[in-house]
Simulated scan of single mutants.
Amino acid sequence: MKKPIIAATLIVCLVAWCVRYYKVNGGTFAVHYEGPSAVYGMHEMVSFGDNISNNALEQPGYSVSLESARMIDAEDYLKELGKKPEDFHSLSEKYLELTLTVANEGDYPKGLTFYALPVLGSNWFTYYDNEVTACINPFFEGDYDQAHACAVRTNTSTTVKIAYNLYERSFLPNQFKNLEHEKMWLSVTTLPVDQRIAFSCT
């Protein structure tokens, strides 16, 4: 008799927590930060400074500018790259390709880590695909294991393309069909300042 009562109590508590979380976050389950924030536009240079990016990474001296963004079906992407599905371990249904200018004014030895730059939506997020990213940047020479960061010499800059997975299962049905119209941001840093770049696909 006690087990059903305990289970019912836990369910009620979980539902109450979900409702509160949903309301606190402005009618969405997306994560929101309460600290200071800054939203930039495309072609604006955003500095990491002393801020921490996703996954608690500090990347001092580096800055990024988002130059272009496009969305493409996996099938069309493979044709463009001259690749076949079996050339990859896995593929998402669509890809988001971002072209960044990456600059370095410091001496941070590890370079800019791609995993630290997720793309955020109003109620979703996604990370980069190392295999496809390796294919679209000639300096990786197709080496998937190396396509995790971009090192730039001090006082210079370079251009890099990053491919992000867009799995259909991660979105609502109507949302996935109209992804081109979704609001999107490239997250640059999270703490103490939430810096992100707003963009749309062309």
Rank of each mutant, 00 (worst) to 15 (best):
42 M>C: 04
88 F>D: 02
67 E>A: 04
22 Y>D: 09
31 V>M: 14
25 N>I: 05
169 R>W: 03
33 Y>Q: 08
196 R>D: 03
45 M>H: 06
168 E>K: 15
25 N>M: 10
60 P>M: 00
100 L>R: 05
165 N>G: 10
41 G>K: 04
35 G>I: 07
36 P>A: 04
55 N>R: 15
59 Q>V: 00
18 C>F: 14
78 L>A: 06
174 N>M: 14
87 D>R: 12
180 E>W: 10
13 C>W: 11
155 N>I: 06
2 K>P: 08
72 I>H: 07
58 E>P: 10
129 D>Y: 00
171 F>Y: 15
40 Y>N: 00
92 S>L: 03
110 K>V: 02
14 L>E: 01
64 V>N: 01
96 L>P: 04
85 P>W: 01
199 F>V: 03
63 S>N: 01
138 P>E: 12
185 W>I: 07
116 A>T: 09
177 K>M: 09
100 L>N: 01
51 N>Q: 00
92 S>R: 08
178 N>F: 02
115 Y>L: 14
83 K>Y: 07
145 D>T: 10
104 N>H: 05
117 L>N: 01
58 E>M: 14
73 D>Q: 11
156 T>A: 12
178 N>G: 08
152 V>H: 02
181 H>Y: 11
37 S>I: 02
161 K>V: 06
22 Y>S: 06
75 E>K: 15
177 K>W: 05
198 A>S: 14
53 S>P: 05
169 R>M: 09
162 I>W: 02
91 L>V: 08
125 F>N: 14
13 C>Q: 08
110 K>E: 01
169 R>D: 05
88 F>N: 08
112 L>Y: 01
81 L>S: 15
16 A>V: 15
80 E>R: 10
23 K>F: 11
168 E>D: 09
138 P>H: 08
170 S>E: 11
62 Y>N: 01
197 I>N: 05
153 R>E: 13
69 A>C: 10
110 K>N: 11
125 F>Y: 12
5 I>Q: 13
134 A>Y: 03
36 P>M: 05
62 Y>M: 00
168 E>Y: 08
44 E>H: 01
167 Y>Q: 11
77 Y>I: 10
168 E>A: 15
16 A>S: 09
155 N>L: 11
119 V>D: 00
37 S>H: 13
99 T>L: 00
61 G>V: 00
74 A>K: 12
188 V>I: 06
62 Y>P: 03
15 V>G: 04
19 V>W: 06
49 G>Y: 04
14 L>V: 12
164 Y>L: 09
111 G>V: 02
165 N>L: 12
194 D>G: 02
116 A>R: 01
65 S>F: 05
105 E>C: 08
51 N>F: 03
28 T>H: 03
132 V>E: 00
92 S>M: 06
75 E>V: 15
28 T>W: 05
129 D>L: 03
